[in-house]
Design a protein around this nucleic acid. Structure first.
Lengths: 233, 233, 233, 233
DNA sequence: CATGAATGAGCCTTCATTCAT
DNA sequence: GATGAATGAAGGCTCATTCAT
């Protein structure tokens, strides 16, 4: 601690508060990667962030605020990556395909991130909201373009979220091999009413390279981004 | 409850142990309907079951054992009801359709049961196993019959479970109206590769009457079993 | 349990009560060999004796009664063995020497017994009383015979008990090798005022064979009774 | 207690942690003077120390840590007093004599301290270690000087500790009068091989005055330090 | 702001004990 | 006599939270 430098007032560089905040959210991510989000304790968080537990109270007042902050961080990452991934990609169905694959793939590559995502999405509505909004746009675009042919938008959302999260869980449990991202995306597309050939075409598209993009890496088994070439159906 | 058979005395000799066990599982269901399964406390359970907390320890040694017992009860109920519902129904696709609709519908009818099911299935692998086994059979039958045309069985399971659970959640959150059971089932069937007309036909079939069947009612807003007639697509 | 034989009254063979009692004391010995005597729990005792915990209450009302029963058993064993060992041996100093050696040796041979003895003697005054009485006689005889030359009888008793118990502890902790029984006895004899040659002579006497004698074996690494020949001093 | 320095405020800034720690160890001493060390409960300790039970956990995580801390305190006291007592005293036999007498005498003067010492030494190996090391040096010095003539060092240690502790117990039980410290010391010296005249000379030496020295007084029947003049043998 | 001592609510767990069968 | 279901006292432990420095 560099408190000794300060003669009278706090000389802290601008952004000190932001840095500590980020440090705490980082720590929370690591903790949640280990235990369930509901089990996150202030004490453990403080220890992981290497600050006194009293300090945590300068930033969050309840455990829920912490989980929310983590959710916000994940949601921002998500938005950020979507933007990059979708640069120059207008087709709603294509965007949705990439988004679904992205989640499953990332869970496979960064197991810790996957666990955190599932746990936080179960605990914080906030995360769901952000993702829902983005998804809804893509769904409607695909519907308008005629690629999708669903009747119930609510059921369509359940399909997309439910299947994707289940797919992530399957990957995290080691019950699926490479290519599960494509299988899940294909299944979702079919459920939305895409024809076989459309779905195959969408799923066959290569993944834009976004390794450079960053985002919050929780663990670090930065894996091979490529899933194997799609099986022909 | 059959306590009504012995209107005055509480002594209950034979089967005492079984009775108390059931009483505890009942209480656990009610508690989980209120709070998350992970938050279930022995103390609270004892209070709800109106026994001393020491008694709980005569039956369960950890909270997990309790949740497992609840899961077992739900799984047994599930199997039981499947058997009744499927009596004389051979077609895998038809069975699957009914099962999916059943879950969504029941969540709508008995909100407490729905909450319990979601919470327990998140906490106890046991429940998932039972359901998976039953589902797998129906999937394969449908595949062999040519109704389903999926490639990846893992993705198909993710589709069925993920979408159904998401549909239950949507219903519990009040974000879907009557008929969501049919919408969810229709979506799942399409995702499994059923044609539009097949899916419509399957979804249009009336629901066998199983109100008489019993099973574990947690809350008691025993609702109107009938969902509205299917919309034409 | 053979309760089914009984048509109206308890047919139990005479001595049934005594047998169950002995069974409980046996079990208590085994339990104390594992944990400290103060930690002895009715529950654990019942389990070890393979009776219901309710049964224990038909025999003992408090934990102390149990420990006392164990102490009584050990004291009886002690008296019994002394009698056998001392058959035809009048000399007080010789008797004391054998008694001291016996304790240390037996602790080495039957570790469980040693632990039990130390633990029970720490918890139950009863055991100490019995041993004291026997010892006192031998001390006084030795004094009268001129072999011992101590002033304070209280200090002499402290010497005998303290050193012997410490010697047992040392053996049980594995901090002493073969022959510690003789070393301890020699030291005690010297402390009581015996001359070097007297002490050597007393310690050199062979140990009467009492393997056949029985007594309560707790563990069962029935060891080589012989300690190595005395070192010459 | 030096709280008297700050008569009004309780805030105690610097050294707060150390103070509370000492306060807890003090309380533990008082509790152990009442009950057995194994029965020490965190709750009771907290109550005795007049802090919340949560506070105790900020200092000790298990009961054993507490007993260890008490043992450490006793061991430090012991070392401290030995140093004072032995100032300018080189002879091993003389030191040992004083040490043995000191223990017995102190048990007589401060009954609570004696109980604590016996109980803690039974529960914490730590205490034994410290005392052993100090004793060993004195034993070897006496052996080299020719005052002692023992063969087995292990048996010699058993003699010293066993007899001294037994002597303390006898005093605490009220089964010995004034002068037991000298009787015990004399007996120990004889057991170590000292001649009668040597032992008498050693035991006759006056006790250095160390009342001023302080150390941990548990009870406070600060007694007459002087034991009666040695009886002639 | 950061720190960390102190607090107490709240849960967990073990067991002695009672009592109806 | 033996059994075992039920009880509740007793203690253990964790943590969120407050507050003085």
């Amino acid at each position: 601690m560099e408190t000794s430098e300060r003669p009278e007032s706090v000389v802290a560089r601008p952004g000190k508060r932001e840095r500590t905040h980020a440090q705490l959210v980082d720590a929370a991510l690591r903790v949640i990667a280990r235990k369930d989000a509901a089990a996150l304790s202030i004490l453990e968080l403080a220890h992981e962030a290497e600050v006194s537990h009293g300090t945590v109270y300068n930033y969050f007042r309840t455990r829920e605020e912490i989980v929310d902050a983590v959710a916000l961080r994940l949601a921002d990452d998500f938005s950020e990556q979507q933007s990059q991934m979708f640069a120059g990609l207008e087709e709603g169905a294509a965007r949705l395909t990439l988004a679904v694959r992205h989640f499953v793939l990332r869970a496979a590559e960064d197991r810790a991130w996957g666990l955190v995502f599932l746990r936080v999405s179960a605990a914080a509505a906030r995360l769901g909201h952000t993702v829902t909004l983005k998804t809804l746009g893509n769904l409607r675009r695909g519907l308008k373009a005629g690629t999708f042919r669903y009747e119930s938008e609510a059921a369509a959302l359940d399909l997309v979220f439910g299947t994707t999260l289940a797919g992530m869980r399957t990957v995290l449990d080691g019950r699926a091999g490479r290519g599960h991202d494509r299988d899940i995306a294909y299944t979702v597309l079919r459920g939305l009413g895409a024809t076989r050939s459309e779905a195959e075409r969408l799923v066959a598209r290569p993944f834009p390279d976004l390794d450079a993009a960053g985002g919050t890496a929780v663990g670090s088994n930065a894996g091979a981004r490529r899933s194997p070439p799609p099986r022909s159906r």
